[in-house]
Design a protein around this nucleic acid. Structure first.
Length: 500
RNA sequence: GGGAGCGUGGCCUAGCAUGGAAUGGUGCCAGUCUCGGGCACUGGAGGUCGUGGGUUCAAAUCCCACCGCUCCCA
């Protein structure tokens, strides 16, 4: 063993493990500017898969892609005061054009609401122009100086930001909810990461939004990670940006808006949740390479028959799967096994002289390291089933982790103990003061206030009942539903956790 | 905002106390040999010791300043 592989164990030094995995598996590299990274081809291929899946859903639900400039004049960015105050500390400013100082500073977009809405206001005149539903695949820049982490917290990140304009409040609400459910589907069914859906508290919501919907996942170190957000902006932006339309009633109305986004942070979550001591483990539905074929040959005698069989298998699988034939001659099979395991390819097909002779191949799973030998005629079925099985067992494993690290409690003492290990589900009075105090004393935030009135969460946790029961923290708690902190009567149930 | 530590071939690293030819591993290149779990051997290329200044016959080593990075505390 040498330092080509990951040299620390995931459960012994998680932070170091994460860095080694993302670097050594060839996802990314550091850039020469603090807080910035370079996404290498293998990492970008994962982003392309996420983008492919998401883009399809966006288009199916009536959204169109467009492009916006990176620079936003200060006068525009500051037009919505609360929004500006929120982003100000992390804005990069362009102050010069060549040698000349600019009359007005230009922000490198931290997010595009202000720029997009200035433009939207020129496009919208009548209710017939609505709804306007546009998505941008781009990057955003936020100056992160402390505690940066590749993919999780970087000063520039790849993301998509959707921006919509609607004629009614209800329509905007539905849109915000719909996009969250689309995100949830992508994250759970493709990335195999279970999430908890609900509202952000006022303290944690997007600055300028009426409310923010969020999806929260739990990382192996017990910290929560925000996976995607969808904001109902109400009329908070349409007023300052003057997005008005003439309704059927012949009167002018301010429009109702949403914005929503997911970023390459999802790749970071993927690494943390599914990875192991050997490196990455990618769910088949999102893996850029689902199957790698590795030939094993001794001398020239068997070499040709092995290579031929590998090519046949490759051709057979290529139509239905993303498959790669590793025919490099300068590396030994053992080296290749380790290399592809580091890169997280879900399934490996090994073909050697023995397999050629017996009319078989060896299939090796990345998730549990099991190897099986299957006859050539069963190959297609076996591969299909195994990939599905890997997809589901990865989700299952992540789900069991989330479940076993989500604690329900009625006492603050227990709260402080559990908060070190995952989500704590507790009653909360709804006051920001309690929220701040808890943050101060324990380092934990309210990550999500779960939905109680809809079907979004019913796909998993809630359906199983028990600890996830909607109206109660725990079964039979009707007698004590007071706030975990101030002991006043509680209006809500909230999930607390330390966050990235 | 406060404190501590670290910068040596692509990467990791020895050397620094007590100044005197820059150590080893990995990776890279060539060849031979191998290949069912990171093969082995031989040879080779690759270094402004973060930057600038100072002390000294002599500085990776001691002193000063700067730059960069990491960690801890608020």
């Amino acid at each position: 063993m040498n330092d080509l592989g990951v040299t620390v164990k995931k459960d012994e030094d998680f932070a170091e493990w994460y860095i080694q995995v993302v670097l050594k598996s060839n996802l990314l590299d550091y850039a020469p500017i603090k807080g910035f990274i370079v996404l290498k081809p293998y990492g970008y291929a994962i982003w392309e898969r996420i983008r492919e899946v998401a883009d399809k859903r966006f288009k199916e639900s009536g959204h169109q892609n467009a492009f916006l400039p990176t620079l936003i004049p200060e006068s525009l960015l500051s037009k919505e005061a609360e929004h500006f105050e929120g982003f100000k500390p992390e804005v990069f400013w362009v102050t010069h054009a060549g040698n000349d100082e600019l009359g007005e500073r230009l922000a490198l977009r931290p997010t595009s609401e202000t720029l997009a809405y200035e433009i939207f206001s020129r496009w919208i005149r009548s209710y017939r122009d609505l709804p306007l539903k546009i998505n941008f695949w781009n990057t955003a820049l936020r100056a992160e100086i402390k505690s940066t982490k590749p993919l999780i917290r970087t000063s520039e990140f790849l993301w998509q930001e959707g921006h919509t304009v609607h004629a009614s409040k209800e329509e905007a609400e539905d849109e915000a909810r719909l996009m969250l459910s689309i995100y949830k589907e992508i994250i759970e069914e493709y990335l195999a990461i279970p999430v908890i859906a609900g509202y952000k508290s006022d303290k944690e919501k997007f600055v300028g939004a009426d409310y923010t919907l969020t999806l929260e996942a739990l990382m192996p170190d017990g910290r929560a990670l925000q996976m995607g957000t969808s904001h109902n902006l109400g009329q908070n932006f349409s007023r300052p940006f003057n997005i008005k339309f003439l309704g059927k009633d012949g009167k002018e109305h301010y429009a109702w808006q949403t914005s929503w986004g997911i970023s390459w942070r999802l790749i970071g979550a993927l690494v943390m949740i599914h990875g192991d001591d050997k490196g990455l483990v990618l769910p088949p539905r999102i893996a850029p390479i689902q199957i790698v074929v590795v030939p094993i040959f001794y001398g020239d005698d068997s070499k040709h028959s092995v290579i031929d069989k590998c090519k046949n298998v490759y051709a057979l699988l290529r139509d239905r799967f993303r498959v790669h034939l590793d025919d490099r001659e300068e590396y030994t099979p053992g080296y290749k096994f380790n290399d592809w395991e580091l890169k997280g390819v879900p399934l490996r097909v090994e073909i050697g002289p023995r397999d050629v002779k017996q009319g078989k191949v060896v299939l090796a799973r990345r998730d549990d390291s099991r190897k099986v030998s299957v006859g050539d005629e069963e190959l297609l079925d076996a591969v299909t089933n195994m990939l599905e099985d890997i997809q589901h067992s990865l989700y299952r494993r992540a789900y069991e982790f989330l479940k076993s690290h989500t604690f329900s409690t009625l006492t603050y003492d227990e709260f402080k103990e559990h908060i070190e290990h995952g989500f704590v589900r507790a009653y909360w009075c709804g006051s920001q003061e309690c929220e701040l105090r808890i943050k101060e004393e324990t380092g934990a935030d309210i990550r999500v206030i779960p939905f109680t009135d809809d079907s979004i969460n019913d796909t998993d946790m809630l359906k199983e009942g028990g600890m996830m029961k909607k109206e109660q923290v725990r079964d039979g708690d009707e007698g004590d539903t007071r706030c975990i902190y101030c002991r006043r009567s509680a209006g809500k149930i909230a999930y607390f956790a330390k966050a990235y």
